[in-house]
Design a protein around this nucleic acid. Structure first.
Lengths: 183, 183
DNA sequence: GTCTATAGAGAGATAGAC
DNA sequence: GTCTATCTCTCTATAGAC
């Protein structure tokens, strides 16, 4: 299987990046977790950054796909937004994409940075569309979408810092209260 | 000056951590930036973690002190909250404390984790007090404070990801709009 | 396409003189 | 308390056989 080792390596890298980030993940760890040999790794991915580019792009695609399923669905816009905000999350683990903004290897590489940027650009756009469908003008919808995405990202930071899932829930509850009060 | 080298080392470490995080900052870099010799570093801080503990504690104290000045001041609670949210920030650089939640060295050390936890515990409490003074009950004030701090932390993540200060401003504008609409 | 062996650089830390 | 020299370990990557 020419492409099998490649896929296994990407999966192993995704899991390790989620746990420790890109910079702190060594080729040796990826080899150990994947069960693939050293020769294979460097055959498929000549450098650590090549592997990171493939694995991070995959994580962004996975995560965006699942967000799109919720936010671009058939339900009422308000319900789609609420579903997105209340979705179950492993909050104390942090966001797999958001955490990369603190990763020196990611931020030092244009390709990797671009993936992270793409994720948030598209995510904010998805949320903004839902708010616009509720009747907000484009600028207000964009601000509110940025606020909503920031609450989730900040919720991850706080849950991780406090080692407590309830911080995410508290942040979301506070936002929903404000959104509800306005309606 | 027995304590002078120590202070200089902590300052250099704080700056390097703000730029690259703790894990990616090497003792050699701290030496180069501080101008202090290797013997001094290992005299004052037997290990990398000892230096990190001192520098991170200092950063938390600095940052909390400045937040307290705004949030615990003499002005009306609403104005204090607005001042805090709109305070000028180097948003694309990320939060010096929040970014540490993605740092494997910090998260792998109980002392360092404790400092990050202390920061957000106290910050949320400060903001919650201001909301409580506005008449919210304790639970609602706490949720709303968590939301507000999450918006700032998320704003940092988004600004850094998009390499654009305006993401932070947009997130704050969206929150202020909701807070204003409710009043 | 995968293997084993190994190179070169830099990491974190220690030794011992001053 | 600070200096220079150096140690050991791991990192990322390469070489060359199969």
């Amino acid at each position: 299987m020419t492409t099998e080792a490649r896929r296994i390596l990407i999966e192993a890298a995704q899991e390790l990046y989620a746990a420790n980030g890109v910079a702190a993940t060594t080729p040796r760890e990826v080899l150990a977790r994947s069960g693939v040999g050293q020769g294979s790794l460097y055959h498929h991915f000549p450098s650590k950054r090549d592997l990171a580019a493939a694995a991070v792009a995959q994580t962004v695609d996975d995560t965006l796909g699942s967000a799109t399923a919720t936010l671009h669905g058939p339900a009422e816009p308000q319900l789609r937004i609420t579903d997105y905000l209340e979705r179950p999350r492993a909050a104390t683990a942090g966001c797999r994409v958001g955490r990369l903004t603190a990763d020196p290897v990611v931020m030092g590489d244009d390709t990797l940075r671009g993936e992270v940027s793409r994720y948030f650009t598209e995510l904010i756009e998805l949320v903004a569309q839902a708010f616009a469908e509720q009747g907000l003008d484009a600028a207000a919808a964009r601000d509110r979408a940025t606020t909503a995405v920031a609450v989730i990202q900040g919720g991850y930071v706080l849950s991780r810092a406090l080692d407590d899932d309830t911080a995410m829930r508290s942040a979301v509850r506070g936002l929903l209260e404000l959104l509800g009060a306005e309606a």
